[in-house]
Each structure stands twice: as structure tokens, then as C-alpha cells.
Write a protein that binds this DNA or RNA. Structure first.
Length: 462
RNA sequence: GGCCAGGUAGCCAAGCGGUAAGGCAACGGUCUGCAAAACCGUUAUUCACCGGUUCAAAUCCGGUCCUGGCCUCCA
């Protein structure tokens, strides 16, 4: 049984998809006006963990991640560089996919772009106009919030008590300040579409309604995003979508908390602003970054610092070394220990149960670490045999489908290094330690660390 | 001002009524030709603060202080 915290009810709920065995999930993706920063990736890593865990639990996951390629910022950027909107956004889209790969973020089934779905948006807006949920004013079209009584149910705002100077002095002509734009009429802006509802461009929220319903249906299982999207973005999506279909839009809303840097909000002016690329340039490893972003529970604020990134890197390094070291036991013949199977079983169950409880990754990792300790004990005691080592590797590979921080490929050493290791073994037997040490240094320069154990020399990648 | 999160060891982080998981770092030990790695052990009488409820509170209630978020287009 999987429990997920639903923002709609502010409670953990038993997860039950509409269609048995399949999860339909929409995750708010990037606005491609710049390189994504690590705060953005915190959300994407959370979504990735959710995606991976649901698959681990046996579900088929159909995920959509939108790409917002038309909004005030992409327009401003294209104008500034005097290029087409597509030319401007293309490089950030490409960069985003590179970054995703770097952090081992699983691909969604669909990455729809807003600019490719204008007709779908227009048709929703037309229905909203027909049904009286929307009105046109001065070339733009707005959603009439007063026509949708449950507005505010996601954010739990009491709109009768909220009025701010900001909303009152809005630049657009609306009936009510809180009404939001579905379609923005344009007069002399360079980017627009000529449609049945006039010349203009879409508002922000409508793209998610149009694209999610196109690929996932009128009602689907999970919709995620950062907490800052709860209001107004997701609130507006609900209003638009439910007004059009008369059906519930989304069953489970999941939102992740923000990332802070050294206890402060990340901002360019404070100089604590990091993109993934910045961190890679500083020499940090992608797996460490992924681990750090992943291992704070998604609903808690994550305080990022380079110190904690180093800690995360060390943790991953240990896990990696553990995985590689297991291959040295695959040569040891003997009967398998029944304890090992039990240890795997317990870890597997603990890992699953922790994640099934609203993605409690810390508890899940604690299971893994205690498993590692148990296996190491057997290893040190010489009780780990090939049959068991293989089972353990298989188990690690399985959970790595969820955590994705262990490099599981390529466990073979090049022949020349194997020869060097043998040569050094011989030198050690002959107590020619000078030669042995120089070979060890030579191999170390190639990124391979040697460990002499009572059972022979092991190697691990640095 | 309204609403919503969070404050747990040097750092990161679980636990959310039954007497403080785990990781990193550090230190001591075992092993080693020396290393490295690994293993074992140690590291919070205490969970921002003050009251209260309870046989029992980090966990519930009230108040205070800090940090962050949202309040119309920021994950």
C-alpha cells in the first residue's frame, strides 16, 4: 500500500490509480528562458524519485512533462537577442535534456511544448466562453473566478479576505482583480497566433490544462510541482479544467518544498545562485548532487550548501565502492549462507515500506546502509561466497533503479591493469615494496585504488 | 496583515504520544610491509524557548522567538 500526501486534503492518502496498474502523471516542467538551477532540479529529482518508485512498485507510469516555451521571459529573451522564439528556447531545451541525463532523471513519455498546442488551448477557451466561465475584454480573455465556486480549494485561501495593492493595480482590464488571463490579446508584440478567439498568445495556466488532458485524459492520477505553484498556477488549472469538463481534474496533488542555500533563498543578487552547470564546473559529481537533492524528504525545505554536497558525494562514493567490491567475492566458491538471503529480504522490505510511506527516502536509505553494514561484516568474516555476492549485486541493481546513484556498468578492468596488479602481487610476495608501491601509484594515476585484504587485492574506481 | 511549512548532535537528516534511526566528519581500536579500504567502538540525559495536558511529550495544546514560502504568471 502506497501512501501519498495530497495537497488537496493536506493528508496522507492511500494511492489508488484510476486504471489498475497504470499511473498517469503530469509534472510541471521548465520555462526555457535560461539554464535550470538546482532549485528547479530539486523538484525534478523529487518527481523522478516518485516516477521510479511507482515503476519499482510495479506500475506502468505514463508521465507528461511540459515545456513552457512561451511566456513573458522567453519573449523578452527572444526580443533581446533578436531571434525567433524557437531559436531562443531551443538551446535551453537542449541544455535541459542534457542536465536531465546528467542527473539520471527518467524521461517522461511526452514533453509537449506550449507553442505546439495552441489549437488545443484555443478550443478549451472557446468552451469556457460558451459556458460563461470566461469573458473577453479588450482583445484578451479572462477566467471569471466568481463563476467557479470551489476556487481556492487547493491553496485553501479565503479570497474574501485577500486583497493586496498588487492585485488592485493590475495592468490588465479585468472584471475582478483575481480573474486570470486565458488568452492575451496582442497589438504590436512580435510573437502571436491568429486564431478563432483573436490575435494573441496563451496565458500561462492554460497550457497545462490543455496538454495534460490531451495526453492523460480529463481526469488523471497525479500532478506535481513546487509549492510555489499551488497558487495561482495549479489552482487556476483546476478551475479551467473542471469548468470545461465538469469532472474532477486530478486525484493527487503533490508539491515539493523549496531549496534554500545556506539558509537563504537562492538569488542572483546574493551570489548564492547555482545552476547544475556551475556545480559541475566546480568539480562536483552528478551522483552526489542527485543524492543530496533526493535525500531530504520532498515536503521539507532542503538547505543546500557545498559542505553538504561534499558529504553527499562521500556517501555515494562509499555505496559505489561497496558495489564494486562485491565483484571480488564472485570468485569465492562455497555454500551460500541462508542469513544473506534473509538480510536481502529484510532490506528489500524495509526499503519498499519506507518509500511507500510518502517517499520516506531517509528511512529507505537507512535500510540500505544497515544492509551494507551486515554484508560487510560477512565479507570481512570470509563468509561471503559467489552465490550470495551475486544475489546482493542483483539486489543493489534493483534498488538502484529507484535511487540511481550507483554506477553499475563496466566492472571489468583493462588487461594491462590486471597484469600490473599481478606484477605487484608478486613484488609484495618478494617483499620488494618499493616496486609494489610504485605500481600502486601508477595504477592510482589511472583512477584505480587498490586494497590489500587477507583474501587478495581488491580494486575500486576512485 | 492573512495563510502554509520548518527549527532534532560539528554538519546533513529520520522519528510525530512510550523513553533519540541513518549518513558525513572526528577520535580510539582491529587489520596492513606502509597505506587505503573495511570492520568494531565512542560522539544529543536531549529535540528553538516558555507554560500546560498525560502514568509517559521531540512528538498533543497554548504562547513566544527565529527561518523560509505563497498572497496573479518563480520548482
Amino acid at each position: 500500500m502506497i501512501m501519498l500526501f495530497n495537497t488537496l486534503s493536506r493528508k496522507k492518502e492511500v494511492f489508488k490509480p484510476i486504471e489498475e496498474g497504470t499511473v498517469k502523471m503530469y509534472t510541471c516542467g521548465p520555462t526555457v528562458y535560461d539554464f535550470a538551477h538546482i532549485g528547479n532540479f530539486r523538484a525534478y529529482v523529487f518527481e523522478d524519485l516518485l516516477h521510479r518508485f511507482l515503476e519499482y512498485a510495479g506500475y506502468r507510469v505514463i508521465r507528461v512533462m511540459n515545456i513552457t516555451d512561451i511566456d513573458d521571459k522567453t519573449i523578452a529573451g527572444a526580443i533581446r537577442e533578436n531571434v525567433s522564439l524557437q531559436q531562443y528556447t531551443e538551446k535551453y531545451i537542449r541544455a535541459f535534456f542534457e542536465d536531465m541525463e546528467c542527473l539520471k532523471l527518467k524521461k517522461a513519455a511526452y514533453f509537449p511544448r506550449a507553442t505546439h498546442h495552441i489549437p488545443e488551448m484555443v478550443s478549451i477557451i472557446k468552451i469556457l466562453l460558451e459556458k460563461g466561465y470566461a469573458y473577453e475584454k479588450d482583445g484578451s480573455i479572462y477566467f471569471r473566478i466568481s463563476s467557479f465556486p470551489s476556487y481556492g480549494k487547493l491553496s485553501q485561501y479565503d479570497f474574501d479576505r485577500i486583497t493586496t495593492a498588487r492585485t488592485d493595480s493590475d495592468e490588465y482590464e479585468k472584471e475582478q482583480a483575481r480573474d486570470f488571463a486565458l488568452w492575451k490579446g496582442t497589438k504590436d508584440e512580435p510573437f502571436f497566433w491568429n486564431t478563432d478567439i483573436g490575435k494573441g498568445r496563451p496565458g500561462w495556466h492554460i497550457e497545462c490544462s490543455a496538454m495534460s488532458m490531451k495526453y492523460l485524459g480529463e481526469t488523471f492520477d497525479i500532478h506535481t510541482g513546487g509549492v510555489d505553484n499551488i497558487f495561482p498556477h495549479h489552482e487556476n488549472e483546476i478551475a479551467q479544467s473542471e469548468a470545461v469538463t465538469g469532472k474532477k481534474f486530478v486525484n493527487y496533488w503533490l508539491h515539493c518544498a523549496h531549496l534554500l542555500v545556506n539558509g537563504e533563498k537562492m538569488s542572483k543578487s546574493k551570489g548564492n545562485f547555482y545552476t547544475l552547470r556551475d556545480l559541475l564546473k566546480k568539480g562536483y559529481a552528478p551522483d552526489g548532487i542527485r543524492y543530496l537533492l533526493m535525500t531530504t524528504h520532498y515536503r521539507d525545505p532542503l538547505n543546500f550548501s557545498e559542505q553538504s554536497l561534499k558529504q553527499a558525494e562521500n556517501t555515494v562514493k562509499h555505496l559505489q565502492a561497496f558495489h564494486q567490491r562485491l565483484f571480488f567475492a564472485t570468485n569465492i566458491n562455497g555454500e551460500s549462507e541462508p542469513e544473506i538471503a534473509k538480510t536481502i529480504e529484510a532490506a528489500s522490505e524495509g526499503f519498499f515500506n519506507a518509500l511507500a510511506d510518502d517517499l520516506n527516502i531517509s528511512a529507505a536509505m537507512a535500510e540500505i546502509f544497515s544492509f551494507v553494514r551486515n554484508v560487510n561484516e560477512s565479507f570481512e568474516a570470509g563468509k561471503l561466497k559467489a552465490k550470495d555476492a551475486e544475489k546482493i549485486i542483483e539486489f543493489l541493481n534493483r534498488i538502484n533503479e529507484v535511487i540511481a546513484v550507483i554506477e553499475t556498468a563496466g566492472e571489468k578492468l583493462p588487461g594491462d591493469i590486471i597484469c600490473l596488479i599481478r606484477k605487484r602481487e608478486q613484488a609484495r610476495k618478494e617483499k620488494n615494496y618499493q616496486l609494489a608501491d610504485s605500481i600502486r601509484n601508477e595504477i592510482a594515476d589511472k583512477g584505480i585504488l587498490l586494497e590489500d585484504t587477507p583474501y587478495g587485492t581488491r580494486w575500486i574506481k576512485k
